[in-house]
């Protein structure tokens, strides 16, 4: 098979059915990535650390959701447990471990995070076992897919996109309009001054880390019904999230959103037009962005 299948790609672009299916498929991939990446970018923006262990929160979110679902049978409770559980975990992780390496060498921070990637994987292995698990689709969503302009759209994915978009809007407005949002932005800009004004920066840092963890956990919980759960499942998601943040610009929420959707579209349409080069296409795009705009699409110049 040729590496290029432009006929399939142009054929798809000309048909509304294919366009709808592939676009929603791109959104699904993108929105889950966004939830993970936005936490990563938020933590970097405020705490100035690259949280290499972020994928673990995605993994814990999925496992928490599965366990809650098995015990209660309630999908809403499963989502809540996934998000709340990882938020608490994030807070503890930040206060007990990460807060000790702020201002330390980047290598030191990376090593601490990497150690926890391994520790968290083994914790999951001890609690839930090494074999893969599946949460199963809740009965409410086991329905025939919708047909929109001839394209196939599963209802569960509509919910998934909706939740992720809502998270993006709440997050964006919250940071821009509310008092807490202003304090967080101020802490990102000049933590020393914020602290001098009598605001507890430790609390802000812990809160932001918990928020980041919660978003990743929510992504994991949303993915649990459709992806198999294994120790180490966070790793490949983390790599793609890094690509998203690099493309969108470290620290930018809008950048994470646009970057994630772009990656989703590249995967979705790329698999039609460039079946043997879909992965490569993603990295190629990242290289192009890095060469033309080293700070990413929406990244600000480092002061």
């Amino acid at each position: 098979m040729l590496p290029l299948d432009l006929d399939a790609l142009t054929g798809c672009l000309a048909s509304s059915a294919c366009l709808v299916t592939q676009t929603t498929s791109g959104f699904i991939i993108g929105m889950l990535l966004f939830l993970v990446a936005v936490g990563l970018t938020l933590i970097f923006g405020v705490l100035k650390v690259v949280n290499f262990s972020h994928g673990a929160f995605y993994m814990f979110g999925a496992y928490f959701a599965m366990t809650a679902y098995q015990f209660s049978g309630s999908f809403a409770l499963a989502m809540l447990c996934g998000a709340a559980g990882t938020a608490i975990l994030g807070l503890i992780f930040e206060r007990v471990f990460m807060s000790r390496v702020y201002g330390a060498d980047v290598l030191m921070q990376l090593l601490v995070c990497y150690a926890f990637v391994l520790i968290f994987d083994d914790v999951v292995r001890m609690i839930w076992g090494p074999e893969f698990k599946s949460m199963g689709m809740p009965a409410a969503f086991q329905v025939a897919p919708l047909f929109i302009a001839g394209g196939v759209v599963p209802p569960y994915y509509l919910l998934l996109i909706g939740v992720a978009l809502a998270a993006a809007v709440i997050l964006g407005l919250g940071l821009a309009r509310t008092r807490i949002g202003k304090v967080i932005r101020a802490a990102a800009h000049n933590p020393g001054m914020v602290s001098a004004l009598g605001i507890n920066t430790g609390l802000i840092y812990g809160g932001v880390f918990a928020l980041g963890g919660m978003l990743a956990g929510l992504a994991g919980a949303l993915a649990a019904p459709v992806r198999s759960l294994t120790p180490g499942m966070g790793f490949s998601v983390l790599i793609e999230s890094f690509i998203v943040t690099v493309i969108g610009g470290m620290g930018s929420i809008l950048g994470a959103l646009i970057g994630a959707i772009l990656i989703g579209m590249i995967r979705s349409f790329g698999s039609l037009g460039f079946p043997l080069f879909t992965e490569g296409l993603m990295y190629l795009f990242m290289v192009i962005v890095l060469v033309s705009r080293p700070t990413g699409l929406f990244g600000k110049e480092v002061a």
Partner: peptide
């Protein structure tokens, strides 16, 4: 040809549907 251990197959699924 999805990668071994790929987490998401959505694009593969929709491609086959097409």
């Amino acid at each position: 040809w999805p990668k071994l251990f790929q987490p998401d197959y959505t694009e593969v699924v929709t491609k086959i549907l097409q």
